[in-house]
């Protein structure tokens, strides 16, 4: 790692001020991606602004919405009785991110701000039609993800919380990369206020995407049979030593059917 200054502000306002004052400074959430990147010397921030003291952790459920603070860890989401009751698919997704040590440190805000194309949370946020709250505004999930490692966040903008409308039913199925255990293909299926949504992470070259053909079919009939014959085009899907685009396309179908079955 290149050396940097470490700062731990006590509020979002102070964090924003520190980040605004130094264009080379970076926000540090759980660090589960950022610290490995820094260890590889792939990034050279002048300062890390640790958000752990900014009061951004916590879960609340009210009015059909689950609101999760940006600094809430995956383990907290996975074990939250409220989340398990309101959106069990979200708790299950959080409980399957990385390994338990990663879940003890990694945060929902960090994951979304980083927008790794193989991360799990983007699939849930997009499928559930969640709203990303920042220190400046609220951003609809559809507008938030803009290709891999690219989001609508502007410089100096920090995620403060994510609000998930409680769906009627939902499920997430992941086919992990055998080596890294990130999502090779992850499919989140939800039926909620905004209708049926099917999102795919891990597979697309541009990060998380909505599977419109499956959404349309499931809108008509929420059943495995409804999507059994929907082929996913391999064009635009990732290809690597573990899975070529064709195989990924096939797995999207399998994971989607399993998610539909699990959603009930």
């Amino acid at each position: 790692m290149y050396d940097f200054t470490y700062q731990k502000p006590a509020s979002v306002a102070d964090a924003v001020k520190l980040l605004g004052a130094d264009p080379e400074a970076k926000a540090l959430a759980g660090g589960m991606t950022l610290i490995p990147v820094l260890k590889q010397r792939l990034n050279k921030p002048s300062a890390l602004v640790d958000l752990a003291g900014a009061g951004l952790a916590g879960i609340s459920v009210a009015g059909g919405t689950v609101r999760i603070g940006a600094m809430t860890t995956h383990a907290t989401v996975a074990n939250s009785a409220d989340v398990k009751k309101a959106i069990p698919a979200l708790a299950k997704l959080a409980g399957g991110i990385g390994d338990k040590e990663v879940r003890h440190r990694g945060t929902i805000g960090g994951s979304l701000a980083n927008d790794d194309p193989t991360a799990d949370y983007p699939a849930a946020v997009l499928a559930l039609g969640a709203t990303v709250e920042t220190n400046k505004r609220t951003i609809n999930a559809d507008d938030f993800f803009q290709g891999m490692f690219t989001t609508a966040l502007e410089s100096g903008e920090l995620i403060t919380a994510i609000s998930f409308p409680v769906p009627e039913k939902a499920a997430y199925m992941k086919f992990p990369n055998p080596a890294s255990r990130y999502a090779l293909v992850g499919v989140f299926v939800a039926k909620g206020p905004a209708g049926v949504r099917v999102t795919v992470t891990g597979a697309g070259q541009n990060g998380v995407f909505r599977h419109r053909a499956m959404e349309a079919a499931l809108q008509k009939s929420f059943s495995q049979a409804a999507i059994a014959d929907i082929a996913t085009p391999a064009d635009g899907l990732n290809s690597d030593i573990h899975a070529g685009a064709e195989y990924r396309a096939h797995l999207v179908g399998v994971m989607a059917r399993r998610a539909v079955a699990a959603a009930g």
């Binding site: 470490y6 540090l28 610290i35 890390l48 640790d50 440190r105």
Partner: peptide
């Protein structure tokens, strides 16, 4: 936690 993925200052 993984102590290799955490800063001492954290």
């Amino acid at each position: 936690v993984k102590s290799c993925t955490m800063l001492a200052l954290q």
